[in-house]
Design a protein around this nucleic acid. Structure first.
Lengths: 115, 115
DNA sequence: AGCACATATCGATGAGCGTCAATGTATGGC
DNA sequence: GCCATACATTGACGCTCATCGATATGTGCT
């Protein structure tokens, strides 16, 4: 079934920063979904490892061992981040290369900013 | 038992933005805890309602009815936000007034920024 | 003292999630 | 065609968490 995949673009397009005006229930849901995708130590480390990797992209095989989690678990976390619009996946041959979606994290940061 | 209450100040004091260098496991844990506190629709709405309320503070009685959740649930969410260092609680008479901790959200936003 | 009100805490319940082992699906090389 | 490698999916287990009703704590008023 098609799950919500555009929560990030949805919410970052529509909303004023959190502290400007009361958040509607729907927008709160969308923003919470995006933040939930971020709110896991393994996923935070994955993001920073991908960003710091050469070429700003990395395949699962680059990430599994340094993270210390099983390959299925890493794949699961990467899928969550892709579905949240934070990472992209590009398959080249046998490998799947993940990289940051430009501006995705900055959009979220903008929603939290109060100044 | 004393739970971790300073995760926010901890992590925002120590770390470069997520995408500058690979995140250590401990820092990832601390940042994830802060984001988890934020990653709930009810808590996001509470934050924005408090910020938008007159005087930039609000008591539980101001928040329960518009949120549509029971009073114990609202109290619970507010406690989570206070423990995470995002809100402060000030008791005046019968009422408990909650307000934003200045700079807390901005520190988190700064960690997500990539530019 | 006694009552009404505001808020916090407790205990229980149900849903969601992180993790893994096992299995499935491609892709490339021999 | 066959095997090895890279990754995704499935199913299950345990733990965390959001929510509520019930109850406790505290404050002000009469």
């Amino acid at each position: 079934m098609a799950m919500i995949e555009l929560s990030l673009t949805d919410v970052t397009a529509c909303c004023a920063p959190l502290t400007r005006e009361p958040l509607e229930a729907d927008n709160a849901d969308a923003l919470a979904r995006s933040l939930k995708a971020l709110a896991d130590p393994a996923r935070l480390r994955l993001i920073s490892m991908v960003a710091a990797h050469e070429g700003a992209e990395a395949c699962v095989c680059d990430l599994t061992e340094p993270l210390g989690l099983s390959q299925p678990t890493v794949s699961h976390h990467l899928k969550v981040l892709v579905d949240a619009g934070i990472l992209t996946r590009e398959k080249r041959g046998t490998w799947a290369y993940y990289s940051l979606v430009p501006g995705a994290l900055d959009s979220l940061a903008g929603l939290l900013r109060t100044v």
